[in-house]
């Protein structure tokens, strides 16, 4: 081997490769690796954010569980007219003025019913409300208007709004 090959070419080639390699590694470390790392960090931050979202999505889980247990015994509840007939036998049934349904999710909905009673004893109203509260699933009174029809307030005109949860396929119909 010529001395200039040994002393110039080989060291220059090896040095060139080494310098190129070191420069490449430096470039990768300074340009590519931080970018990859930041992308990874962003993905992990997104995963943590998804965990938080999943946590908030479980906000109504206890409510739905309570509904499940409340409806477990009697999946199909009684209608308000049935309840009225049971609580105030012999009295004319209330007038059903409107029925609305609000979907909660794939399994549950809320049924809202407006009832009007032109002249009804207050005791019968009280018994009907008691029957609504204790039925399963319960009918909740969300609004009511009572207007006394006599001085002693024994009879009244009543307008009630009741609502009750129901399974979408097994919902109780009024």
């Amino acid at each position: 081997m010529k001395p200039w090959v040994r002393e110039v070419v080989l060291p220059a080639a090896a040095g060139g490769v080494a310098i190129a390699s070191v420069l490449s590694v430096l470039w990768l470390e300074l340009a590519v690796v931080p970018e990859r790392r930041s992308r990874g960090e962003a993905l992990r931050a997104d995963l943590r954010e998804l965990d938080r979202i999943a946590e908030s999505a479980r906000r109504y889980t206890p409510h739905l569980r309570a509904l499940d247990s409340a409806c477990a015994a009697s999946p199909t509840g009684r209608s308000p007219l049935d309840l009225f007939a049971g609580a105030a036998p012999g009295l004319p049934p209330p007038v059903l003025s409107a029925t609305r349904e609000v979907a909660l999710d794939a399994h549950w909905r809320i049924t809202q019913v407006d009832l009007a009673m032109a002249d009804v004893p207050l005791d019968a109203v009280s018994a009907f409300l008691q029957a609504c509260a204790t039925s399963r699933p319960p009918w909740r009174v969300s609004a009511l208007r009572l207007q006394a029809l006599d001085a002693g307030s024994t009879r009244a005109r009543a307008v009630l709004t009741l609502e009750s949860p129901a399974r979408r396929e097994e919902a109780a119909r009024p």
Binding site: Y60, H63, L64, A66, L67, V102, L104, I110, L129, Q130, C132, A133, P138, R140, V141, S142, A143, L144, E163, P165
Partner: peptide
């Protein structure tokens, strides 16, 4: 609306 269902009734 579930929140409302778990409020005490007007009764």
């Amino acid at each position: 609306p579930l929140d409302r269902l778990f409020q005490p009734p007007q009764t």
